[in-house]
Write a protein that binds this DNA or RNA. Structure first.
Length: 415
DNA sequence: TCTGGGGTCCTAGGACCC
DNA sequence: TCTGGGGTCCTAGGACCC
């Protein structure tokens, strides 16, 4: 029996820019960009000039002199993104949200209530348009990968349904970089063996792909090119890591710069970990130098941590080690902290010594206990009065260039 | 105004254990 | 003294996605 195309991929078009045009009618029909130093989102009118997300603002203005930059109503992005996902949830509980503006849904179990997958997709699009005022594109197919490609092809503001008997015809004419997992590097490598369409990729021998891209990537791409994609909708997936980073401009690679910066980053990360009782064992720092080359250092502890001061100290040690290995580098342009190997502790959990300790790998000392109490106090004050009510000042972070916290929160995955 | 901030997954070598 | 293969964990780097 043929399996029907019941997977939807719904993707709000030029999301942040569309929200800005919704909120301010004078922006409609005009090339606009959300952001400033970097373009977070561009309206379709701006995209026509070649403006893209991630592009430096300066470059965007060169391409499109009449481009209007707008501030960014981050709370509205969150509200409207949530509302669009809620529309999908009105049809089926099998919804997998993958970002603020994008989700998969499997409607196999609700066609008897709402009609064919294509009809459901149109209903979703209509409701998002009439109730929220936003354009959304939807792809419908038998697999997640193909549904996602279909929604990209459907943009802007369209619907593409790929019936099971037309899958490979549809897929094989498309360029390889529409595939999930093919970015600039892989695209260039494939071009070396004269592969530029998904059809050409499909016809390339497996050993050739594996030699070019490695065993895992080679096999995965071959499978996707033949639309073999076994992935199911995953309704609740938990985060594997949590991190924070901050671009610094160009700052001297000195303690007095990186210590306060790391404390601020550690505070952001650790308070999220504490809020969900998910301490982690592995701490990774990333140091980017002036020329944009970056190095990482990590350590895996014997016991998981979520105390701000503890995380900050471990991170400082790692940064010192990274800088010591690159004595010629005098300038840093970014610092990042990530915590992985997250555990789940139920409710209140003290970071207590698990045994007798060597200072570094067994971070649960009496000092740790004191800090834990201090962290809990800070957390409690913030819960009542907001993040900025108390905490570690971000003195060295160059707040003028950093994005608002509201934007950072948009990108945070549920822990 | 040179290039944001949040993540996931893979590779490869070495340590270590059985 | 010389020899092995498999498995797991850790670390550093990199590609990719939104």
């Amino acid at each position: 029996m043929e399996i029907a195309a019941t997977i939807l991929h719904a993707d709000l078009d030029a999301f942040y820019a569309s929200v800005e045009q919704l909120l301010d009618p004078t922006l409609r029909g005009k090339p606009i960009a959300v952001g400033g130093g970097v373009v977070l989102a561009a309206s379709y009118e701006a995209k026509a000039f070649g403006v893209r997300g991630g592009m430096a603002g300066r470059r965007a203005r060169e391409l499109c002199p009449q481009l209007t930059f707008v501030g960014g109503h981050f709370e509205d992005y969150q509200r409207l993104g949530d509302a669009a996902i809620a529309v999908l949830n009105d049809f089926t509980p099998l919804v997998e949200r993958i970002s603020i503006d994008e989700a998969f849904a499997d409607v196999a179990g609700c066609t008897h209530l709402f009609g064919s997958p294509a009809e459901i997709a149109q209903a979703v699009r209509r409701r998002v348009r009439t109730e929220l005022g936003l354009p959304i594109s939807v792809g419908v197919a038998r697999t997640k990968h193909l549904a996602k490609i279909a929604s990209q092809v459907a943009k802007p503001d369209g619907l593409v349904v790929v019936e099971p008997d037309t899958e490979l015809t549809f897929l094989h004419d498309l360029p390889v970089d529409l595939m999930w997992g093919v970015g600039p590097v892989t695209k260039a490598r494939l071009a070396e063996i004269n592969v530029s369409t998904i059809g050409q990729l499909a016809k390339t021998p497996g050993w050739s792909l594996e030699k070019l891209l490695g065993p895992a990537a080679g096999e995965k791409l071959a499978d996707l090119a033949w639309n073999r994609d076994p992935r199911q909708i995953r309704t609740h997936s938990r985060a594997q890591s949590a991190g924070a980073q901050s671009a610094l401009g160009k700052k001297p690679a000195e303690e007095k710069i990186f210590r306060p910066a790391l404390l601020h980053l550690a505070d952001r990360v650790a308070s999220r970990l504490r809020a969900k009782s998910r301490p982690g064992r592995t701490v990774t720092v990333r140091v980017r130098f002036a020329d944009m080359r970056a190095v990482t250092r990590s350590i895996t502890l014997d016991a998981p941590i979520s105390a701000t001061a503890m995380l900050a100290e471990v991170a400082e040690e790692l940064v010192r080690s990274a800088l010591a290995d690159h004595p010629a580098e005098k300038t840093i342009s970014l610092l990042a902290i990530a915590v992985s190997h997250l555990e789940q502790h139920s409710g209140l959990q003290l970071e207590l010594p698990l045994g007798l300790l060597d200072e570094k790998r067994r971070p649960g000392t009496r000092k740790g206990m004191t800090r834990w109490v201090a962290d809990r106090a800070v957390d409690a004050i913030r819960e009542r009065f907001g993040w900025d009510a108390v905490g570690y000042a971000s003195v060295a972070l160059g707040t003028a260039r950093s994005l608002p916290d509201a934007f950072r929160e948009l990108a945070e995955k549920e822990l």
